[in-house]
Design a protein around this nucleic acid. Structure first.
Lengths: 233, 233
DNA sequence: TTTAATTGTGTCAATATTACACGATTTTTA
DNA sequence: TAAAAATCGTGTAATATTGACACAATTAAA
C-alpha cells in the first residue's frame, strides 16, 4: 500500500572524505576495498544508509567504524546522483566532509578496513565518482578555511603558530608571510597562550597555544579573511 | 538479483527554493498543494526523481514545470534525510536553490500549480521540513552574496545601481551607504553603462547598467566582499 | 663559541574602508 | 513659474587594514 506508487526507490549511500594534517601535508584517509565490487581498488570510506538512521547519524557511524572516534567535525557537502555512478544499481550518495586530528584515531580499526593516510599528491585513482567528491571537498576546505577558523580541527589541542601557518600553507599550496600571518591570527583573539613551549622544536621553541573555545564557537560563523587577498582583480 | 541485498531503497524527492526580488523585498515562490498529502497547505515546489534523470536535471524539470523558464541559476544546497520527515514513507529530499527574475515567468504555469510569490515576512508555515530548507537557503544566499556577484540573477537584464543596492539591503535586512555601495560595485568592473536611463524613476533618472558577462563568468568564484564589515569582532 | 635555523615583535608605506557633503536632475507643488 | 522635495552621481578626509620588510632572541648542532 504505497502512497507514491509511481516514484522510484533507490539506494542511499553515505561517503566520507576524511582529512588530516601530518605537519606538512593534507592527507586523506582512504580504504583499499576488501569487498566487491571494485575489490582491491581505492575508495572513500562509505556505506549504505540504515533503516532507522538519519543521514548525519549514518556519517557518524561510518566515521566511528573506521577511526574509533566520536565528536568529529563533520559537514554534509554535496550529494552525488548521476544515473550510472554506481554500475551495480542506481545509488545516490550523500557526501560528508570530516576533519580529524591525524594522531588520534584507532590503528586497529584502520587496519581492519585496509585504510591508509595518503597525501593529495599520492592519491590514487578512486572508484566510481569518488575523485569528483574529493575535488569538491578540497574546494570546500579552501573556501571555508579562508573565512572561518576551520583549520584547528586538524591540529592537536595544543599547537604553535608556525604549525598553524604550515597547515594553511598546505591547504592553499602557497607560502605565507610569517609576521603577517601571526598578526592576523593573534588579532582574532582565538588563541590562548598556554605558557608552554613546543619541546620537540630543533631550534627556538615556539609558544604552544590552544583555542579559546567560547570565542571559537561564537565566532565560527562570522566572516573573516584568514587568507591574504592581494590585488583582487 | 540485487547486488546489495541488505541495503534499503527509499524515495528521492527534489525540492526547490525559488527566490525572486520585486524591487523591495526578497520573495519566495511557493505552492498551495492541490494534491495529497497535505492538500491545501503551503509547500516548496518539488517532485520525485525520475528513473533516468540526474539530480540537476530533475531540479531543472521541476523549475521549468512551474515557471516555464530554462537556464535558471540553480545550485544544490543541502539534502534532508530525517527518518520521519515525510509521514507517508521514508523519503530523502535533495534541495536546490534557484534565483530568477520575478518578471519573467509564465503566469499560466504558476496558476496551474497554485503558485504565489510571498515575501519572507508573509511566508506561511510550510509542510514537512520545508521551513528548515528555507532557513538554510536564506543563510546560503546571505553567505554567498557577500562574496560573489550573485544578486544579478534576481534583477532584469538592465538595472540601476540604486536597484542593486535595494536588493542587497533586502538580502541583509540592513541599510547601506549609497556612496560606498556605488564605489564598491563600480570598482569590480562588472557593470557596463548602457547609456540609457531608467525612465520610470520619479525624480532624477538613474543610469541603467548591464552585466559584463565575460567578467561575470571569470570572476564569479573569486573572493570578494560585497558587504561592509565594520569592526569584525 | 660560532653557525644555522627558527621564533617573536616592530615599522612603514600603500591600499581599502568608512563616514560624510555637495551639486545636479527631475517631478511635484505652491 | 518658481520653489520644494526626492533621488542620483561624485568627491574627500580620517581611519583601519594590509603587505612588505628588518632585527633581535632562542636553541641545537657544528
Amino acid at each position: 500500500m504505497k502512497r507514491y506508487p509511481d516514484a522510484i526507490r533507490i539506494l542511499v549511500a553515505i561517503d566520507c572524505i576524511i582529512m588530516g594534517f601530518d605537519g606538512t601535508a593534507i592527507k586523506l584517509l582512504l580504504i583499499k576495498r576488501n569487498f566487491e565490487p571494485e575489490k582491491g581498488n581505492w575508495s572513500l570510506m562509505g556505506g549504505f544508509l540504515h533503516q532507522n538512521e538519519d543521514l548525519e547519524a549514518g556519517a557518524e557511524r561510518i566515521l566511528f567504524d573506521l577511526t574509533g572516534l566520536n565528536n568529529i567535525f563533520v559537514e554534509h557537502i554535496t550529494t552525488a546522483g548521476k544515473i550510472d555512478r554506481d554500475p551495480v544499481e542506481r545509488t545516490i550518495s550523500v557526501v560528508f566532509f570530516a576533519l580529524i586530528n591525524i594522531n588520534n584515531q584507532d590503528q586497529e580499526a584502520l587496519n581492519a578496513h585496509n585504510a591508509q593516510w595518503l597525501s593529495l599528491e599520492e592519491k590514487p585513482e578512486l572508484i566510481f565518482d569518488h575523485d569528483e567528491m574529493v575535488t569538491k571537498a578540497i574546494e570546500y576546505l579552501r573556501y571555508k578555511a579562508a573565512l572561518h577558523p576551520l583549520g584547528f580541527e586538524l591540529l592537536p589541542e595544543k599547537f604553535t603558530i608556525p604549525q598553524l601557518q604550515k597547515l594553511y600553507e598546505a591547504i592553499y599550496d602557497m607560502k605565507l608571510d610569517r609576521r603577517n600571518f601571526s598578526r592576523k591570527i593573534l588579532s582574532t583573539g582565538l588563541l590562548v597562550d598556554t605558557g608552554e613551549k613546543y619541546e620537540q622544536s630543533a631550534t627556538k621553541k615556539a609558544t604552544l597555544y590552544q583555542l579559546n573555545q567560547d570565542r571559537y564557537k561564537d565566532k565560527f560563523f562570522a566572516f573573516w579573511h584568514f587568507m591574504p587577498h592581494p590585488g583582487i582583480d
